[in-house]
Amino acid sequence: MPTLNPQELRPIWDALAVVCGRWRMPIIHCLCGQPLRFSELEAHLDHITPKALAEHLHALELNGLVSREVLPTRPVVTRYGLTEHGRSVLPLLQEMRRFGEQHRQHLTTG
């Protein structure tokens, strides 16, 4: 088996640093249709705590995948949406879903 040099693995580590985390890909999935408010995201993501949602949104925002828009309304409304860079993750998300479906079928059919 050929060995990979560390420079070949670096892009994989970089990608994992951005999308890893239990909730990051599900958040991206929720935002692929339209921007959502924090409470709307919470409603779509069963069992996520507000703290975890805030942390993951912040990390995704820092990495340029999610944008945060504060609307000048009363009360203030904050919406989160995917950036152009965030949309570049969608093919990866689709492949992960396809693999997950195949893997589940593989496990159930033995």
Rank of each mutant, 00 (worst) to 15 (best):
residue 2 P to K: 15
residue 3 T to Q: 12
residue 4 L to Y: 13
residue 5 N to E: 13
residue 6 P to G: 12
residue 6 P to S: 15
residue 6 P to Y: 02
residue 8 E to L: 12
residue 9 L to M: 12
residue 10 R to D: 14
residue 11 P to Q: 04
residue 15 A to L: 11
residue 15 A to M: 15
residue 16 L to Y: 12
residue 17 A to K: 13
residue 18 V to R: 06
residue 18 V to M: 03
residue 19 V to W: 08
residue 19 V to G: 10
residue 20 C to V: 02
residue 20 C to Q: 04
residue 20 C to K: 13
residue 23 W to E: 05
residue 24 R to N: 10
residue 25 M to K: 03
residue 26 P to N: 09
residue 26 P to V: 01
residue 27 I to R: 04
residue 29 H to L: 05
residue 29 H to K: 12
residue 30 C to V: 00
residue 30 C to W: 01
residue 32 C to F: 02
residue 33 G to C: 01
residue 34 Q to I: 08
residue 34 Q to M: 07
residue 34 Q to P: 06
residue 35 P to Y: 05
residue 36 L to W: 02
residue 37 R to Y: 02
residue 38 F to P: 03
residue 39 S to W: 05
residue 39 S to L: 01
residue 40 E to G: 07
residue 40 E to Q: 15
residue 40 E to D: 06
residue 40 E to F: 10
residue 41 L to E: 01
residue 41 L to P: 00
residue 43 A to H: 14
residue 44 H to M: 06
residue 45 L to V: 11
residue 46 D to I: 11
residue 46 D to W: 11
residue 47 H to N: 02
residue 48 I to S: 00
residue 48 I to A: 05
residue 51 K to N: 10
residue 51 K to I: 09
residue 51 K to Y: 13
residue 53 L to C: 02
residue 55 E to P: 03
residue 56 H to K: 06
residue 58 H to V: 06
residue 60 L to V: 06
residue 60 L to Y: 10
residue 62 L to R: 05
residue 64 G to I: 11
residue 65 L to Q: 06
residue 65 L to T: 06
residue 65 L to R: 01
residue 66 V to N: 08
residue 66 V to S: 02
residue 68 R to E: 07
residue 69 E to C: 02
residue 71 L to E: 09
residue 71 L to M: 15
residue 71 L to V: 04
residue 72 P to C: 07
residue 73 T to N: 11
residue 74 R to W: 08
residue 75 P to G: 07
residue 75 P to F: 07
residue 76 V to W: 01
residue 77 V to N: 04
residue 77 V to G: 04
residue 79 R to I: 06
residue 79 R to A: 05
residue 81 G to F: 01
residue 82 L to W: 09
residue 82 L to A: 13
residue 84 E to V: 09
residue 85 H to P: 03
residue 85 H to V: 12
residue 87 R to K: 09
residue 88 S to W: 07
residue 89 V to Y: 03
residue 90 L to M: 01
residue 91 P to K: 10
residue 92 L to W: 09
residue 92 L to F: 10
residue 92 L to Y: 08
residue 93 L to S: 05
residue 94 Q to A: 15
residue 95 E to R: 14
residue 98 R to F: 04
residue 99 F to I: 13
residue 99 F to M: 02
residue 100 G to F: 00
residue 101 E to I: 08
residue 103 H to P: 00
residue 104 R to T: 14
residue 104 R to F: 11
residue 105 Q to C: 02
residue 107 L to N: 08
residue 108 T to G: 12
residue 108 T to S: 14
residue 109 T to F: 14
residue 109 T to K: 11
residue 109 T to A: 13
